[in-house]
Computed example of a mutant assay.
Amino acid sequence: MSERSAAPGGLALVESLVNTLEIDTGADALDTADGRARFGLTEDEAVDARELRESLRAALLAHAGHPPHRSVTPLGELLARAPLVLTVDDGDGSAALAPADGRSLLSRVAAAVAESLVADSWTRLKACEAADCHWAYYDRSPAGRGRWCSMQVCGARAKMRRYRA
């Protein structure tokens, strides 16, 4: 067991699920009622949760450059069964994929994986700050602090206005 801090965001769920099995001892938290309760699972759902856990483990091993520890159902095949819906917050415009079927473990894991894939992308799609433009653009600046769709047009105009003022 590691002393590291938990993975960020929804990936903490993935980390926690994968870590329900201690490979060296064979102790499986999903064998216990308390262990299943942590994930909102019934005893019958534990079989599918174990399949998901081992598919996730194989993917995480691949991330680290290691072969899978055993033959498993491909993670993509499992996640393709997870119904997700796109939600958009009317207040700040943030978007997320959320489980469509209540809160099944498979859908929660799929949403966590999707979140980790798009976390840095969605917020970089912006509208130009120039009041006479508001053109949508993808901010490719290293720090993600771009303000205008084009530095040569809208950015230059704003700088000229500031200079003249």
Results as ranks from 00 to 15, higher is better:
residue 44 D to R: 05
residue 101 D to E: 12
residue 69 H to F: 08
residue 140 R to N: 14
residue 66 H to A: 14
residue 69 H to C: 05
residue 45 E to V: 05
residue 102 G to H: 02
residue 98 A to I: 00
residue 105 L to C: 08
residue 135 W to R: 03
residue 118 V to K: 03
residue 137 Y to T: 02
residue 86 L to Y: 08
residue 70 R to C: 00
residue 45 E to M: 01
residue 50 R to F: 06
residue 134 H to G: 09
residue 102 G to K: 00
residue 130 A to I: 07
residue 120 D to V: 10
residue 141 S to W: 08
residue 50 R to N: 10
residue 145 R to M: 08
residue 108 R to Y: 01
residue 77 E to A: 11
residue 94 S to A: 08
residue 94 S to V: 01
residue 57 R to V: 00
residue 127 A to H: 13
residue 89 D to C: 11
residue 94 S to K: 10
residue 126 K to G: 08
residue 99 P to Y: 09
residue 128 C to D: 03
residue 123 T to G: 13
residue 84 L to V: 06
residue 135 W to D: 07
residue 64 A to H: 15
residue 151 M to R: 06
residue 138 Y to H: 15
residue 115 E to I: 00
residue 66 H to V: 07
residue 120 D to H: 06
residue 56 L to D: 14
residue 64 A to F: 01
residue 148 W to H: 07
residue 123 T to R: 12
residue 120 D to S: 07
residue 58 A to I: 08
residue 110 A to V: 12
residue 141 S to C: 04
residue 63 H to V: 11
residue 92 D to M: 00
residue 67 P to V: 10
residue 104 S to Q: 10
residue 87 T to E: 15
residue 78 L to R: 15
residue 74 P to V: 05
residue 149 C to N: 02
residue 52 L to Y: 07
residue 100 A to E: 15
residue 100 A to W: 02
residue 145 R to A: 08
residue 96 A to D: 12
residue 80 A to N: 00
residue 141 S to T: 15
residue 75 L to E: 11
residue 62 A to D: 15
residue 72 V to N: 13
residue 68 P to F: 04
residue 128 C to G: 07
residue 146 G to H: 12
residue 151 M to I: 07
residue 91 G to H: 02
residue 111 A to Y: 06
residue 76 G to T: 06
residue 132 D to T: 07
residue 144 G to E: 08
residue 83 P to I: 04
residue 117 L to N: 03
residue 128 C to H: 05
residue 148 W to P: 06
residue 146 G to D: 15
residue 118 V to M: 03
residue 71 S to D: 12
residue 139 D to F: 03
residue 114 A to T: 06
residue 58 A to L: 04
residue 126 K to V: 08
residue 46 A to Y: 01
residue 69 H to N: 06
residue 123 T to Y: 05
residue 88 V to I: 04
residue 57 R to M: 07
residue 130 A to T: 12
residue 118 V to C: 05
residue 133 C to L: 00
residue 141 S to K: 02
residue 73 T to W: 11
residue 140 R to L: 11
residue 151 M to Y: 01
residue 128 C to S: 01
residue 109 V to K: 10
residue 77 E to H: 12
residue 108 R to M: 03
residue 144 G to R: 06
residue 54 E to W: 13
residue 133 C to G: 01
residue 152 Q to W: 05
residue 148 W to A: 10
residue 91 G to M: 09
residue 143 A to S: 14
residue 96 A to F: 02
residue 121 S to F: 13
residue 121 S to L: 14
residue 55 S to Q: 04
residue 47 V to I: 10
residue 130 A to H: 15
residue 146 G to M: 08
residue 141 S to H: 12
residue 142 P to L: 09
residue 74 P to N: 04
residue 78 L to H: 08
residue 144 G to C: 07
residue 53 R to K: 04
residue 120 D to Q: 09
residue 48 D to Q: 11
residue 122 W to K: 00
residue 92 D to P: 03
residue 44 D to I: 12
residue 55 S to E: 06
